[in-house]
Computed example of a mutant assay.
Amino acid sequence: MFELDMRSRKPIYEQLVDKMKELIMNELLKTDEQLPSVRQLATELSINPNTIQKAYRELETQGFIYSVKGKGSFVNPNQKAIDKEKIVEMKKELEKLILEALYLGIPAQELISLIQDLDASKGGA
């Protein structure tokens, strides 16, 4: 499914959360698609099942997945309708990062180009 960097300073569960979010946002994992079981993924990635469980809990908290008792975890069908609060929160975080980048001397046009490149690579206008 994907690889994790065991030498990274970023905790494994955070790497897992980021990878799963990326797969969901790029629609490689489809709406209502069942995710691998905790044990299955732990075996596949050779990591502790508790780490997988922690990542799944975080994904559920963020609204990317939902779980059905006795059935497993699934991709949340309504990702397009994420809470407006999350969008506002994301904009605030972006604003902080942009201000920091500008403070560090990254030209505004370079940031704009980066956004346009990312948008183009995702199939945007």
Rank of each mutant, 00 (worst) to 15 (best):
L45I: 09
S46C: 01
S46R: 08
I47Q: 09
I47P: 01
I47A: 11
N48I: 13
N48A: 11
P49H: 02
N50L: 12
N50S: 15
T51S: 11
T51K: 08
I52K: 05
I52R: 03
Q53E: 14
Q53F: 07
Q53R: 15
K54Y: 04
K54S: 10
A55P: 06
A55H: 01
R57T: 13
R57G: 04
R57M: 04
E60N: 05
T61K: 12
Q62K: 07
Q62A: 07
Q62D: 11
G63S: 04
G63I: 03
F64A: 08
F64P: 03
I65R: 01
I65T: 14
Y66Q: 04
S67L: 02
V68K: 08
V68W: 01
K69T: 13
G70C: 07
G70D: 05
K71P: 04
K71Q: 11
K71H: 08
K71T: 02
K71L: 11
G72K: 01
G72L: 00
S73C: 07
S73K: 04
F74K: 02
V75G: 04
V75A: 08
N76Q: 12
P77Q: 05
P77H: 04
P77S: 13
K80M: 12
K80Q: 14
K80P: 00
A81K: 11
I82R: 11
D83M: 03
D83Q: 10
D83E: 15
K84Y: 09
K84E: 15
E85S: 13
K86F: 10
K86C: 09
I87G: 09
V88A: 15
V88E: 15
E89I: 09
E89M: 12
E89T: 13
M90P: 07
K91M: 13
K91H: 10
K92R: 11
K92P: 03
E93P: 01
L94I: 07
L94D: 12
K96I: 10
K96Y: 06
I98Q: 12
I98F: 11
I98M: 13
I98E: 15
I98A: 14
I98D: 08
